[in-house]
Computed example of a mutant assay.
Amino acid sequence: MRKQGHRSRAVVAVLTAALLGVAGCDAVGGDSAAPTAAGKTKASPTPTPAWDSSPASMAAVGDSITRGFDACGVLADCPDVSWATGSSTRVDSLAVRLLGKAKAASRSWNYAVSGARMADLSGQMAQAAARTPGLVTVMVGANDACRDSTAAMTPVADFRSGFEDALSVLRKRAPKAQVYVASVPNLKRLWSEGRTNPMGKQVWKLGICPSMLADADALDAAATERRDTVQERVEDYNAVLKSVCAQDEHCRYDGGAVYDYRFGTDQLSHWDWFHPSVNGQARLAEIAFRKVTAVT
Score class of each variant (00 low, 15 high):
205 K>D: 14
205 K>H: 01
206 L>R: 13
206 L>W: 05
207 G>D: 06
207 G>N: 11
208 I>P: 00
209 C>R: 07
210 P>R: 01
210 P>M: 00
210 P>S: 03
211 S>Q: 07
212 M>D: 09
212 M>F: 03
212 M>R: 11
213 L>D: 07
214 A>I: 01
214 A>S: 14
215 D>C: 06
216 A>K: 06
216 A>Q: 03
217 D>K: 06
218 A>F: 04
218 A>R: 14
220 D>M: 02
220 D>A: 04
220 D>P: 10
220 D>G: 04
221 A>W: 02
221 A>F: 03
222 A>I: 13
222 A>C: 06
223 A>I: 08
224 T>M: 12
224 T>G: 07
226 R>W: 11
226 R>S: 11
227 R>H: 08
227 R>F: 10
228 D>L: 10
229 T>D: 15
230 V>E: 05
231 Q>I: 04
231 Q>H: 14
231 Q>S: 14
231 Q>T: 09
232 E>P: 01
232 E>C: 01
233 R>A: 15
234 V>I: 13
235 E>K: 14
236 D>P: 01
236 D>C: 01
237 Y>C: 01
239 A>P: 00
240 V>K: 09
240 V>Y: 10
241 L>G: 09
242 K>A: 13
244 V>N: 07
244 V>K: 04
244 V>D: 06
244 V>F: 04
246 A>P: 09
247 Q>P: 03
247 Q>N: 14
248 D>K: 02
249 E>W: 00
249 E>N: 08
250 H>K: 12
251 C>S: 02
254 D>R: 04
254 D>V: 04
254 D>P: 06
255 G>S: 10
256 G>S: 09
257 A>N: 06
258 V>P: 08
259 Y>E: 13
259 Y>Q: 14
259 Y>C: 00
260 D>N: 15
261 Y>D: 14
262 R>E: 09
263 F>A: 14
263 F>W: 10
265 T>H: 03
